[in-house]
Design a protein around this nucleic acid. Structure first.
Length: 224
DNA sequence: AGCACGATGCTCT
DNA sequence: GAGCATCGTGCTT
C-alpha cells in the first residue's frame, strides 16, 4: 500500500538549505519544506524533526500576514533577507516559528506547524512532556503537532528570533531530507484567522502530510 | 472525537 | 485598551 512511499529517495543532509531555497514565493517554500529536517543545536546536542505541516503568509496584501500593517519592530525581520527565523509571541504564552521567504523588502514567511521528532527525543521530552496516550501511527500526536508545541519541544523563543536558518552555527537550521509525494499532501485554509477578511481567510495555503503517511516517515527517519 | 472556553502578556493603535 | 497565525482542560457525543 505504501510501495511508492517506500521507494521515495532519502537524502538526509547535514547542510542546511541555501538562502536561494527561501528566496521564492512562500507557498512554494511551504510545499518544499514538507519532508525537510528541522534541526536545533542546543548545548552541542542535536534535536531534530521532519516537518509535516506548514502555512504560507505572503506579503502586505495578505490580510492574514502580520506584515499587512506594514513595517513594525515585530515584522521587520520579514522585510529582510530570506532564510532567517521569524519567531513571535502570541496568545499571552506561545512562541511560533516561521521561516522568512522571498526577496528583500517583500515581507513573507512560512509558519512551521508540525514536526515528527526523529533525533534527541529524550531531550525534547524534558522541554515538552510526551502525552500519556501515545499512538503508533502518529508519534507527533499531542506532542509536536502544533506551532507552539514545536517551540516548547525545541526550546525556541525570543532569543532565536532572526536566527539564520542557512547557518547551523545559529543553533537552528533546516536541511533536505525527503520529498513528500503529491498524493500525500492535504491542502486547506490556514488556521486561526478568525477576523481576517476573505479571500485571505479561506485561501488554501495550509499544507500538511496525511496522517497515514506519518508512521512510515517516522520509521524511515528515526535517529537520523 | 469534537467543541467551548479560559489562561496570559506582547504588540500596535 | 483591543486583539491575537494557541493550548489544555473539561465537557458532550
Amino acid at each position: 500500500m505504501l510501495n511508492a512511499a517506500v521507494k521515495t529517495p532519502i537524502h538526509v543532509s547535514i547542510d542546511p538549505f541555501p538562502r536561494s531555497f527561501y528566496t521564492r514565493p512562500a507557498l512554494l517554500v511551504a510545499r518544499e519544506l514538507l519532508g525537510a529536517r528541522l534541526v536545533r543545536i542546543l548545548d552541542g546536542s542535536v534535536l531534530a524533526g521532519i516537518i509535516v505541516e506548514t502555512e504560507a503568509y505572503q506579503g502586505e496584501e495578505d490580510m492574514g500576514c502580520h506584515a499587512h500593517v506594514g513595517r513594525t519592530p515585530r515584522t521587520e525581520v520579514m522585510y529582510g533577507p530570506a532564510g532567517h527565523a521569524y519567531i513571535y509571541f502570541t496568545y499571552g504564552m506561545h512562541w511560533l516559528l516561521n521561516a522568512v521567504t522571498g526577496e528583500i523588502g517583500e515581507p513573507a514567511a512560512v509558519l512551521i506547524r508540525a514536526i515528527l521528532p526523529v533525533s534527541g527525543l529524550d531531550r525534547m521530552e524534558l522541554f515538552r512532556p510526551r502525552p500519556a496516550k501515545r499512538t503508533d501511527n502518529n508519534p507527533a500526536r499531542g506532542w509536536t503537532d502544533g506551532p507552539a508545541k514545536i517551540c516548547q519541544a525545541l526550546h525556541l523563543a525570543k532569543a532565536q528570533n532572526t536566527a539564520d536558518l542557512c547557518d547551523l552555527n545559529s543553533g537552528l537550521g533546516i536541511s533536505p531530507a525527503t520529498v513528500i509525494p503529491e498524493d500525500q499532501v492535504i491542502i486547506g485554509p490556514r488556521v486561526g484567522l478568525f477576523t481576517v477578511p476573505e479571500p485571505w481567510k479561506s485561501i488554501p495555503w495550509r499544507l500538511r502530510v496525511k496522517e497515514t503517511y506519518l508512521a512510515h516517515l517516522f520509521k524511515t527517519f528515526s535517529n537520523c
